[in-house]
Simulated assay, not measured.
Amino acid sequence: MDTAPPSYSAAVGGNPVQTQPGQQILTQQAVVLVPVILTTQFKIVPYDKPYVEYCPVCKTNVTTRTKYVPGGCWSVVMILAILFLILPLLFLLCWSGVKDVRHHCPTCGSLLAYKRRMCGGSGN
């Protein structure tokens, strides 16, 4: 059998570059992965309950899906309850009235709006 094995560049997958007759230099291509950061813009709203909002991702009007998350007012109540050992205040931490409200698109899940609670009573 008089067949030659494949060249190194063919076996490895590189690109051969001819320098002189009979000599090859192997070059490799590097794949660089660049992270993509998606940013969404949302607005601050005074609504606790779901409402109709335009979703820029779905490009349709949707009724928002709400999610209650701990925010600034929730943190103040928790600190007061811990510092002064006021056990009834700990029950307020389970109440949605002291948590911030996030409004999401029910189809794609993107954040559309946000309601921030204020403990002073001016933002509720």
Score class of each variant (00 low, 15 high):
L89C: 04
V69R: 12
V62P: 00
P46C: 05
L89E: 01
P88W: 08
V62S: 03
A10R: 08
I86T: 06
V36W: 15
G22M: 03
D2L: 14
V17H: 08
G120N: 08
I37N: 14
V76N: 02
G13K: 07
V17E: 06
G22C: 09
A113K: 05
V62F: 01
L83W: 15
G123W: 02
P16E: 03
L111E: 04
Q24D: 09
V52P: 01
W95C: 10
G120Y: 01
V57T: 15
Q24K: 00
S96L: 08
P56D: 10
G13S: 04
S122D: 06
P46V: 12
Q41L: 13
S122P: 00
G13N: 07
P5W: 10
M118F: 08
Y51M: 13
Q23N: 14
G22Y: 07
T66R: 07
V69Q: 03
C108G: 12
M1K: 06
L38R: 11
K99I: 02
L93T: 03
Q18K: 14
W95S: 07
P46Y: 07
W95L: 11
M78R: 08
V31M: 09
C119V: 03
G14P: 00
Q41N: 11
P70N: 10
L87E: 15
L26A: 09
K99D: 00
R116G: 00
G123I: 02
C73V: 00
A30L: 15
G109A: 13
P46A: 10
D48N: 10
A113Q: 04
A11C: 12
L83R: 12
P46H: 07
Q23F: 13
T66A: 02
L92M: 08
Q29N: 12
L92R: 04
G121K: 01
T63W: 12
C108H: 06
V12P: 04
V12T: 11
P16G: 01
H103C: 02
Q18E: 15
D2R: 15
G121M: 05
L90A: 14
S96Y: 06
L87N: 12
L85S: 10
Q28H: 15
E53M: 09
L90Q: 03
K49G: 00
G13V: 00
C55M: 11
T107P: 04
P56E: 11
Q28W: 13
L38Q: 13
G71M: 05
G14N: 06
Q28N: 06
T27G: 04
P70Y: 13
Q29P: 02
P16T: 00
I37K: 11
K43S: 08
L90M: 15
C105Y: 02
S75Q: 14
G120L: 05
V77Y: 03
G97I: 10
G123Q: 03
V52I: 12
S75V: 12
Q23S: 12
N61M: 13
A11D: 14
T27C: 03
P21D: 14
T27M: 05
L85T: 08
F91K: 08
P21V: 08
V34P: 06
P46K: 04
T66C: 04
D2G: 12
V31P: 01
I44T: 15
A81Q: 04
P5M: 11
C94P: 02
Q28M: 08
P21C: 09
Y114M: 07
H103A: 00
K59R: 14
L83K: 15
V76R: 01
A81N: 05
L87P: 06
D48I: 07
T107Y: 05
G72F: 01
T60C: 07
H104V: 09
I79A: 07
K49V: 04
I86D: 00
W74P: 01
Q18G: 13
I82T: 11
